[in-house]
Amino acid sequence: MHLTRFRLNTARSGARRLLSSPRTMHAAVMNAFPDVLPTDTDTPRVLWRVDRNAKAEVFLYIVSPAKPDLTHVVEQAGWKERPNWQTYDYGPFLERLAEGHTWAFRLTANPVHSIRRKDGEPTKVTAHVTPRHQAQWLLQRQEAAGFRVLEKPEDQRLLPEGDEHELLVHDRRSNAFDKPEHQPAATANGKRKNRVSLVTATFDGRLEVVDPEALRRTLTRGLGRAKAYGCGLMTLAPAE
Rank of each mutant, 00 (worst) to 15 (best):
D42K: 12
V129I: 14
Q140V: 03
G120T: 11
K179S: 04
V63W: 02
F147W: 08
L198H: 01
H133M: 11
D42Y: 11
T41P: 01
N189A: 11
D178Q: 04
V29T: 12
F6S: 00
K67T: 08
P212W: 03
V209C: 03
F93Q: 10
E81Q: 12
K80G: 06
R206D: 10
K55H: 07
D155K: 15
Q183W: 10
A228R: 01
G222M: 01
D155I: 14
D51H: 14
A27D: 05
E81Y: 07
E75C: 02
H128D: 14
A109F: 11
E154F: 13
R45T: 15
R206H: 12
D69F: 07
A66Q: 12
E151G: 12
E151R: 15
T108Y: 04
A176T: 02
Q183V: 12
H165F: 14
V209L: 04
E166P: 01
A228Q: 00
P180F: 04
G91N: 15
L3M: 14
T202L: 00
V74E: 07
A56T: 13
W79S: 06
I115M: 10
A135G: 15
E151F: 07
S174F: 06
Y61R: 14
S197C: 08
A144C: 05
D40I: 05
G230E: 04
P68Y: 05
S13L: 15
L139Y: 11
N175I: 00
G205N: 04
E121W: 14
M234Y: 07
L223T: 03
P92R: 10
V63P: 02
R17I: 00
M30R: 15
T123N: 11
Q156V: 03
D163V: 01
E208F: 00
V58G: 00
S64I: 13
F203K: 06
G14E: 01
D51M: 09
Y90S: 00
W48G: 01
L70Q: 00
V63D: 00
Q156L: 13
G14H: 01
L159N: 06
E240I: 11
C231F: 00
T220D: 13
N110Q: 10
E164I: 08
A32E: 08
H2S: 09
A201L: 03
P180L: 05
M234N: 06
A11N: 07
V58I: 07
L3R: 08
H113Q: 03
V36D: 03
I115Y: 08
P38D: 08
A32Y: 07
E143H: 15
D119M: 12
E121A: 15
V46F: 04
T187I: 02
N189W: 09
T39N: 11
P212Y: 03
Q156F: 08
V63S: 05
R96G: 10
R96I: 05
T130S: 10
